[in-house]
């Protein structure tokens, strides 16, 4: 099967800044793929390389096997849901959705009927006559989604699709996007800096750091077996243990990752430290210990007795929970 999107050592340098540096990436057809990373890590530039708003300074990009490096955005069968939605303010919702069909020359009646179908798909039937300014953030997002899907793209790109929504709406939209992608069978590629979003929605994801991909894998692989210290820290705020601490705690002399939810507090142990901070999270409390200069967090479930700040404690964990990493940054 041909990959939906394929990057072959793709680079995008802006002068001395390597926004995207020699990235290899294969996204399977029908995947729900996430590009996760902090701001400035190159994930958005990668998305814009696929949509065509950036051109690579090196390497080749193929969409369904076809080299698109020289194809302008309006000739690519790829559509985007923009971060700020970028709805056309002077058009009503129906005309917004029908825009892609209009510029292709489809007749008015046919394209407006199609736009209504798309609005029904995103549960906005009856909103066609409104202007974007009359919609809530969540509704605008659905319009942007319908507008991007009307051209029946083979790949849909979503740039921080849920970033502007409040928490409740965001969770509802996560489920909806997932269901929609399942139903349409289109390849969805979305960019996010929110690890929860990436882990819960994507079938597979790439973690970006400084213009390169730090790790590609399924959410479980990324979460349970982070390849680098960066991935361990960025995805799920894992405790990153330096080699000497790992060894003192009974592991090999290598960098290791230990999830706070797998870490317990113990009265005594091979290494003791002091409690430096307590953070109440509702479902539990995050207790931070200073273990010989390394901050290690333990997530205590609600209801457990909490230590006092400054108390001398150690940690305990199931040896299987300790994930040893290579030395890579």
């Amino acid at each position: 099967m041909t990959a939906a999107v394929e990057f072959q050592s793709v680079s995008r340098h802006f002068g001395p800044v390597k926004a995207v540096d020699s990235v290899d990436l294969t996204i399977a057809e029908g995947a729900f793929f996430a590009m996760l990373g902090p701001s400035g890590s190159g994930k958005t530039t990668c998305l814009r390389l696929i949509s065509g708003f950036e051109t690579p300074t090196g390497g080749a990009i193929r969409i369904f096997g076809e080299d698109v490096s020289a194809t302008p955005p309006h000739l690519r069968n790829v559509n985007t849901v923009f971060q700020d939605y970028a709805l056309f303010p002077h058009m009503n919702v129906r005309d917004n959705v029908a825009y892609g069909l209009m510029v292709k020359g489809m007749g008015r009646a046919a394209r407006l009927a199609r736009a209504e179908e798309m609005l029904a798909l995103v549960k906005l039937d009856g909103y066609g006559d409104r202007k974007p300014a009359q919609l809530s953030g969540g509704q605008r997002q659905r319009v942007a989604l319908a507008r991007a899907l009307v051209n029946e793209p083979r790949v849909l790109l979503l740039d921080e699709p849920l970033g502007a929504l409040d928490l409740k709406l965001r969770e509802a939209m996560q489920d909806e996007l997932k269901a929609l992608q399942h139903r349409l069978g289109i390849t969805f590629i979305f960019v996010t800096h929110d690890q929860h979003e990436a882990l819960s929605m994507a079938d597979s994801l790439a973690v970006f750091n400084e213009g390169r991909i730090a790790q590609i894998g399924t959410p479980a692989e990324i979460y349970d077996r982070p390849a680098t210290r960066f991935v361990a820290d960025f995805v799920g705020s894992s405790n990153v243990l330096p080699p000497d601490l790992t060894r003192a705690l009974g592991g090999p002399a290598q960098w290791a990752s230990l999830r706070p939810e797998n870490t317990r507090l113990a009265a005594s142990g091979p290494v003791t430290g002091t409690v430096t901070a307590l953070r109440y999270l509702g479902s539990g409390t995050r207790v931070v210990l200073d273990l010989g200069g390394t901050e290690v967090a333990a997530l205590l479930p609600a209801g457990q007795p909490l230590p006092e700040p400054g108390a001398a404690l150690s940690i305990a964990f199931d040896p299987a929970a300790l994930h040893v990493m290579g030395d890579a940054a």
Binding site: P73, H74, N79, T80, A86, L87, G100, V103
Partner: peptide, 20 residues
């Protein structure tokens, strides 16, 4: 963003000028 959105949806430069 609206100019990019127009191009993304398949409009050429003239169409973007004319309609957006």
């Amino acid at each position: 963003g609206v100019m990019e959105a127009s191009a993304d949806l398949g409009a050429n430069a003239f169409q973007t000028f004319r309609y957006v």
